[in-house]
Nucleic acid binder design. Structure first.
Ligand SMILES: [Mn+2]
Ligand SMILES: [Mn+2]
Ligand SMILES: [Zn+2]
Ligand SMILES: [Zn+2]
Lengths: 137, 137
DNA sequence: TTATCAATTTGTAACGATTACAACTTGATA
DNA sequence: TATCAAGTTGTAATCGTTACAAATTGATAA
């Protein structure tokens, strides 16, 4: 039934729900640590032995085009993915490398300087040391 | 004299002022469109025919370590560089591909959720259509 | 001046994430 | 059951970046 739920969701967003696409979207929803293509591929390869890394790339590209996922380049070495497409900030701990989501008051940022610009997307990336790592040192 | 001025600036920041380093820093200061390594290399190669792209990479790495420049990954395809190291936002126009700086009220963003985190760096990337492109369409 | 030596620069090779592409598979439709 | 477009797969190519060893530079001291 779960399978069917995700299938409907994809269909409602104009995406033909193949087995691979359902599994990849399900993984993104259930693993909110902003996984990379590599991580997603490795995690699903046991369930879907025939899975190709290209399919993971293709599928995420479709998700982004259809607006049900977004890409996060918070490290310049690898792109991460997020099924949460509402505007929110990301904090990366330089110690444990974990990525935290945080709420942002969108209005307060939209600066005076951009008042005549059309802003379609906004990314906020913060870097530092998280609460947990601070307390463990 | 200009040469000497940049030389002193680099020295004051713990960087030995070689000819290449002076030229690269000078270029960064005078070309505020957030150039890539490729752009910097191509621009300086006529003045310095022996310049190596590796030197551009090495030099920018030193600048970043010493805190007189920063890297901007506003497109995931290439890294850009900025001699303005104070916290500010970047807007990329999807039409003309120009990158605009904008002021950000730092305090207003520092969200409640991060109150126990140490934040060392923050990047704000906005995407959309700039004022000029809006008016020309 | 000349020798010495570490820092810097250079060119080339290697790396690795991503993309291109052609062959194969799947599944809906007639 | 045949057809055919859409989706998947594996491999090769691409390209920005990094590793590395050799060459050059420039400061210091004999
Ligand atoms: Mn997120
Ligand atoms: Mn800037
Ligand atoms: Zn941490
Ligand atoms: Zn524009």
């Amino acid at each position: 039934m779960q399978e069917n739920y995700f299938g409907d969701f994809l269909r409602n967003n104009g995406i033909k729900p193949s087995f691979q696409r359902i599994k990849i979207y399900e993984y993104l929803l259930q693993n909110k640590e902003h996984p990379t293509v590599e991580t997603i591929y490795n995690a699903l390869n046991s369930q879907i032995p025939t899975l190709s890394k290209t399919t993971v790339y293709n599928t995420l590209k479709v998700f982004i085009e259809k607006g049900i996922a977004m890409a996060i380049t918070i490290d310049d070495t690898e792109v991460r993915f997020d099924a949460d497409v509402k505007v929110h900030g990301h904090f990366k701990c330089e110690h444990c490398h974990k990525i935290y989501d945080f709420e942002v008051d969108v209005e307060s940022i939209s600066s005076e300087a951009l008042k005549d610009f059309d802003v379609y997307d906004q990314q906020m990336f913060f870097y530092g040391v998280c609460k947990v790592c601070k307390n463990n040192s």
